[in-house]
Amino acid sequence: MRSAIVLGCVVLLAACSNPRQEVTSQLAQQVLLPAHQQWHDRNAALVQAVKGFCEGDAERTSVAQAFMASQQGWSYLQPLMVGPLSEGNRSWQVQFYPDKRNMVAQQAEALLDSHDPLTQQALDGASVVVQGLTAFEYVLFDDSVELQADKARYCPMLMGIAHHQQGLSGEVMALWEEAGGMLAQLTDFPNDRYASAEDALGGVLRVQITGVDVLKKKLGTPMGRLNQGVAQPYQAEAWRSRQSVASLQASLAGAQAVWERVRSLVSDGELAGKIDQAYAETRDKLEALPAPLFELVQDPANQPLLQDLYRSLDTLETLQQAELASDLGIQIGFNANDGD
């Protein structure tokens, strides 16, 4: 780069004089950064769990628990994913979803066939399809994988993915915490990313609202909403580990954490109450699901239950996308979603 960009305008607003700046700063320091740190810590724990299992000091269940923690840490992050994790194709490296053509299984086995044993360098240089939690889940949970009996083949992949995730989350944390990094960009204005706290708050809310829309897709796709009503259980997120509902719950909790910080800015008390209620209803309906999503979608008798949950998500999305955005004067999308 020829030189760093020097911002022409250096007028900084006093944080406490602007409620939106205060909320944005709180979001950054008390919600977004801690969520990234939690994800990073869980990735570090995943490395240790794999090491214990592959060296024979721990059972497979300890790896499964560590995987679920990483998966949920990632799910919690998705509605909060402003900045580095959403850029540079990094999110594809965390999770390859949706996997419409079962590419994870095919490419994981092909990579293992071509490297004996698989090296970290080979995995880091391979496709994003095999670098993330979806490939890890395949090795750990797929019925076709004889993990216990063939540790020599599969442990290098588990360890490689765990290290890759740890490296990725470490890189993202550094980009948040460095001087002028994402944390600074969400607290001191103007900066190279945002002209004002209003811009930054808009950026956070757009991601959060989009995140709720993604939840609808994660539920609706296995229900068959995109497939003429024919269920697609293998299109459920984390179907191999039966963690779809837990992932949805974690993402909803992440979205709600943003909402709870933003609520104070809403001028319409009735609207705030409706959004509170929509979160509570959706959370309750998720908790009440009696079985993994992979199983629920395959029995037509469960359709009313799932449709009811879908409607709750839809209500939540509409309240936020239309009414909350309007109340706060936040623009949701334009060219980025509908360009040419």
Binding site: I5, A195, G339
Partner: peptide
């Protein structure tokens, strides 16, 4: 499409940027 418009002055050895007063 979603935020403030910008001007980039690329003359000389350094690039400076300012946010424009156009509608956001």
């Amino acid at each position: 499409g979603q935020g403030r418009c910008r001007h980039f002055d690329c003359r000389g050895g350094s690039v400076t940027s300012e946010w424009l007063d156009l509608p956001s």
